[in-house]
């Protein structure tokens, strides 16, 4: 983790798919069991170089998501470690029952990589937005759900997934983000990371919104408000202790994610707080089918900008005092 000298908003930006394909190739070189499985999504998953390096180990079933996930389960039965790479909206929406039955319930060693999740497809509209994926998958037993925040965490989560035995879903962002973590960051399942300390209020975030929460904390600090920022890459299993600690030690929690406001990270945090240590919780996300607009525009529109997150924190502090 890093506490940066200059504002996080001014750092260079990265497309996490680049870290994804680089890490996948590195893992595939080291372990012959690793294969890619795609639904014609070679280009959109940036897997052209992987296909060149491992022509037999990139299985393209065509535009057929149900088959894609079933095939991955069968490959796992035969001892392979499939990394399914497909646009998160189609992977999780079209093949939800296969994810439940063939992967999670069957305990198949399949890694589901939801590419370009959230509102990454911007102007293509709600059919292509994948804001429901976290809520859907969090409801499925025996399935780990990870939302990395930057290229470093994307790579670290992939390495962890390859080494772990069992079903995992990982979001792989398309929208460019600054690096939040130092290069030696090691992913630990179910552990929140305090990326900024603070005592007044807690911001819990992940994915493309985490850096925005950090930038919000910078703005709040300028006003004398000390905001703790918790990075929560593992939505399931959730770090209950870190959430309870935040509920106990600060005036309230703002969650911010590139997902629906029901059932995702915000829902998980709210469930935890309500059961263990009731506290104020503000849930930021996208509560409806979004209008036309770029990904960046839409995040800002729904209060997921640094300013919007800081506003929610101020509001929460005002009403709780």
């Amino acid at each position: 983790m890093s506490i940066l000298d200059t504002s996080i908003a001014d750092q260079p930006r990265y497309d996490c798919r680049d870290a994804y394909v680089e890490t996948l190739a590195e893992l595939a070189h080291a372990d012959h069991r690793i294969v890619g499985v795609v639904n014609d999504s070679v280009g959109s998953s940036k897997l052209n170089s992987f296909r060149k390096a491992f022509p037999d180990r990139l299985i393209n079933v065509g535009i057929a998501e149900q088959d894609m996930v079933g095939v991955a389960s069968g490959l796992a039965n035969g001892g392979r470690i499939p990394f399914v790479s497909a646009a998160s909206c189609f992977l999780t929406g079209r093949a939800l029952e296969q994810i439940k039955a063939d992967v999670a319930y069957s305990n198949a060693n399949v890694k589901l990589c939801g590419m370009s999740p959230g509102v990454a497809y911007g102007e293509l509209g709600p059919t292509h937005h994948s804001i429901e994926d976290i809520a859907w998958l969090r409801a499925i037993a025996n399935l780990t759900v990870i939302v990395p925040a930057d290229p470093v965490e994307t790579a670290a989560a992939l390495r962890w997934a390859a080494a772990s035995d069992g079903p995992v879903f990982i979001r792989v962002s398309r929208m460019s983000v600054p690096k939040v973590y130092a290069d030696d960051y090691e992913f630990r399942l179910g552990r929140a990371i305090t990326v900024r300390s603070g005592d007044d209020v807690t911001l819990i975030s992940n994915g493309t919104v985490l850096w925005r929460a950090l930038a919000a904390a910078e703005q709040l600090a300028a006003e004398g408000i000390s905001a703790r920022v918790l990075s929560m890459p593992t939505v399931k299993p959730l770090d209950v202790d870190a959430v309870v600690e935040a509920a106990r030690e600060t005036a309230g929690i703002v969650t911010a994610e590139e997902a629906v406001t029901g059932g995702g990270l915000g829902g998980a945090v709210a469930e935890t707080v309500v059961q263990h240590h009731p506290a104020r919780v503000s849930i930021l996300g996208i509560p409806e089918f979004a209008p036309t607009g770029s990904a960046g525009y839409l995040l800002d529109r729904y209060g997921l900008s640094p300013e919007g997150i800081a506003d929610s924190a101020r509001q929460l502090l005002k009403t709780s005092s």
Binding site: Q66, G70, V71, G74, A76, N77, A101, D102, S106
Partner: peptide, 25 residues
Amino acid sequence: VEANTGPLGHGLPVAVGHALSAKLD
């Protein structure tokens, strides 16, 4: 038992995946 089936239309894709693994091997 090789796969947790029940919802229909699941076994054949899983079988294709296994057959692919055998071919790769």
